[in-house]
Design a protein around this nucleic acid. Structure first.
Lengths: 333, 333
DNA sequence: TTGTAGGCGTTATCAG
DNA sequence: CTGATAACGCCTACAA
């Protein structure tokens, strides 16, 4: 692969000149520029990004840390980052597979070695202090789906308590009183917050939520199936299910239908996230829209501009709220 | 951020020694090694990947080119790459958003500048010669979902003609004679091959496929809806629909249900891809399983080992075949 | 407008 | 076992 030196020789100029035409440097004679450009084409020269990064101490790369690329939620998140990165001509360096503090750290480490000055991180396990600390050495650090007060100007997050409230208020307004909850057994804040929101709203409405009507399982369709099986096995009484996410809701529906329980005529159900599935499962899912793509866009814009030297405003805050999407899985009693 | 030089000074040794302990170089005194190691920890030193890449002319990075990260198909593909890359401790550099020859080229270019020696590329528009050429300068080049005879040992692809046949043979075996096809209007090989397979099988079975029973639209749920609307509007007669992919099948079902046509009792339908949607839409979709994750795994393993110097065997070939997954969207007549 | 030369942070090849 | 020292490919003052 041709190097700058070779171009310079072939064109009979110095490396500096080649470098200048490459970077649209000022002050290069038109004829020289054209000659050099021609040679570059001819030799099919490509600048070495590593060398350039070394010399300039910066690189148009944005580091991304995600739990995976497969789940629709993360795929949408990745897409949101991707779109903005592309707009800014940034490459995306992805470190995924992070579940748990150690693997999250292991995912972040290589990005630091790559000297990415912009990073969008989705981390649920590493402690707050870790990021407060990291923010000092990575100017373009931004967290998504997490709220750390000390660096709130680097956090783009969703108000899950509000989301929980919204679900509960709506289902109560539709006349339901016997509520079941199908939640995630992951020990992160999200399920806790959502249930907490549900509890608050239910309490205000004077509706009781029995502990035995709450089931925890993995936040995927299989988990949803299992949770409802347990509910049914226990003989729990409910006319509505509030699910942790659409995936669980979908699994829940599967089990209900298998038991000849019609949705929404016998049991109503509300999902959370509004992933593609929600729109194309049958019945179409009434759910809470998690504006993850929007949030990812925002996070990426932030990361890039912070990485480019913009100083985060002290009082900046990026809280998003879910909204209710009414489809066909809830019946008014 | 601390550099090797600083570590060396602080430890009272030369850079060379630091480098040795870092790379587990042989022949370093135990005491020196420990001292250096301690300083490294203390100063929170991190090697600069760019400098290292420059010096070694290699980098543990695998370049990936995809159309997007959002579509379940691509998300699964990305995940398949991700898993293997992680196993090999490789970072993933993603260039997405490639639709059409120009943008595909623009996606590949930066990966070359990054000197990735392993690349997994999904490209539908760039001509064969481009890749035959590229293979000469990128030892670890591997194409996924494409078959280029000249570099067949770098291609991991699916036999779409066989897939088309499979769908058609199955639907005929189930007693259907009035077939409609809902295909993609993208001008790439895949839809052509699938329909070609369908035609062959139908012809062999002596079943006619009317041109007017074929509709083309975008390969997404909306496209599926639209295609079936057109079919219905034309008054086309059919008891079964062969869809280009699960997304279109899902959209097709939506339209059918909206028109009070029951699936599968009135109309049967077969999808293609077996994405998550297929399993969780209602009715569960009978479809062709596209082993894309498996293929992505394979492609990545290949790319990495080719990139590490393994010479591709002349006669190697990586053709995969779809298999039929029977669920609930087909009725036997 | 163009060239010279030093440096970016590592690795790797020599000697010692 | 350890230390100089020359690459690696590019950028960027500073000179010319």
């Amino acid at each position: 692969m041709a190097t700058m030196k070779e171009i310079a020789e072939a064109a009979g100029v110095s490396q500096a000149t080649v470098s200048r035409v490459l970077n649209n440097g000022p002050k290069v004679g038109l004829i020289t520029r054209q000659r050099v450009q021609r040679i570059i084409e001819e030799l099919n020269y490509r600048p070495n990004a590593n060398a350039r990064a070394l010399a300039t101490k910066r690189r148009n790369e944005i580091g991304v840390v995600l739990a995976d690329l497969y789940e629709p939620f993360f795929a949408t998140l990745a897409h949101g980052i991707d779109v903005v990165a592309r707009k800014h001509q940034c490459q995306i360096l992805i470190s995924s597979g992070s579940v748990g503090a150690d693997s999250e750290r292991n995912a972040i480490e290589p990005l630091l070695e790559h000297q990415c000055n912009a990073m969008v991180i989705h981390s649920k396990s590493l402690p707050d202090e870790y990021f407060v600390d990291l923010a000092r050495s990575v100017p373009g650090l931004v967290l998504i789906n997490r709220h750390i007060p000390d660096i709130a100007n680097r956090c783009v997050w969703l108000d899950n308590i509000a989301g929980g409230k919204l679900m509960a208020e709506y289902i109560v307004r539709q006349g339901h009183r016997d509520i079941a909850v199908v939640s995630s057994d992951f020990s992160i804040d999200d399920p806790i917050d959502r249930i907490s929101g549900i509890r608050q709203a239910l309490k205000e409405a004077g509706v009781e939520l029995k502990e035995s009507n709450i089931e925890y399982a993995e936040p995927n369709p299989e988990g949803g199936e299992k949770a409802v099986q347990n509910l049914l096995a226990k003989g729990a009484k409910f006319t509505a299910i509030l699910a942790y996410n659409d995936a669980m809701a979908s699994g829940a529906i599967t089990t209900l239908i298998d038991h000849n329980i019609d949705v929404p005529n016998d049991v109503s159900i509300i999902g959370y996230d509004d992933i593609l599935l929600a729109k194309y499962c049958r019945p179409k899912l009434t759910t809470l829209r998690y504006p993850i793509e929007l949030m990812a866009n925002r996070a990426t814009e932030l990361a890039i501009s912070y990485g480019n030297g913009l100083i985060p405003a002290q009082d900046a805050s990026f809280k998003y709220s879910p909204t209710l999407i009414r489809r066909d899985s809830v019946k008014r009693l």
